[in-house]
Design a binder for these strands. Sequence first.
DNA 1: ACTTAATCGTTGACTTTATCAAGAGTTTAC
DNA 2: GTAAACTCTTGATAAAGTCAACGATTAAGT
Lengths: 155, 155
Amino acid sequence: MATKPGTTTNTIDRFLASELAGEIEFLTARNRSLGSARANKLLGPLGLKVRSYSVLSLACSGMAPTQRELAEFLLLDPSQIVPLVDELESRGLVGRAADPNDRRSKVITCTNEGMQLYKKARVATAEGEDIAMANLSKSEKETLRELLARIAFPQ
Amino acid sequence: MATKPGTTTNTIDRFLASELAGEIEFLTARNRSLGSARANKLLGPLGLKVRSYSVLSLACSGMAPTQRELAEFLLLDPSQIVPLVDELESRGLVGRAADPNDRRSKVITCTNEGMQLYKKARVATAEGEDIAMANLSKSEKETLRELLARIAFPQ
DNA sequence: ACTTAATCGTTGACTTTATCAAGAGTTTAC
DNA sequence: GTAAACTCTTGATAAAGTCAACGATTAAGT
């Protein structure tokens, strides 16, 4: 009997002391995997995934992102933005508008329905965040948010 | 309030004030993307990627992980572990040993060469971590590490 | 003004990664 | 002792990442 069937926490605890478990890149990868799986589950009933949610969120930000800007901010290839916007557009949630200053670019804007869905989706992702950080105090959450932002957007 | 699109000011800065940029799940996903790309580049000369490095690291931990445990700790499907171990094994870096207590399981152990390569790889990932957290003080780094661990391994 | 180069969205080909089901061998449970 | 559960493995399929090239448009150079 090497491992008791049904108890999955034993395995994790066994490797908490490993050098890998202390590496921030590993912890980040693990948190991303846990977080996106949870977010996808919460967004599923709305017909969204983390990717399409991110695009919808920026489309609803009032900042009029172009597809190129979406790719850069989300760290995706521009060709990956196309089917994401296609799907949201086909559902009437966002629209492609010609940029008057540069007709090569297409500005992504959200429709009223897109905004309504985004508000629901935002509640879902906030719930996921609460679950993820259930063990953290309010000030710890804000500390974590600030430190993550300084790494995600180095000056 | 739509900001003027197409302006050549830094694209990232334009969206720092977006609601998405304040979401921890988004920041985590972005950090993971930046970090794994950087780590893969640093590990490339050693013939490793973040995935194979993670397996090698645990194999060299002295904790004798089984493939099932590797999958659980790394949040991968067990079938994904197979080709990872295959590749490391074919290079003589790790070995599959029958678990004497349970002959279904295979314990992954590292060879001398595996350990030597791991030590070099560990230097590379530490360098990546230094680059990622260049803007953080030493105490901020440890705070971040602890907060990430509490999310990655909820009790 | 006119040619050349660069940019944006898009398509398509291709590789890598993720997800799932099923099978052979082994261990556990009843 | 038989049935159920577990581990590794294979294979099929879907999703995601990477890269080159094209038409339309803009910018740069002369």
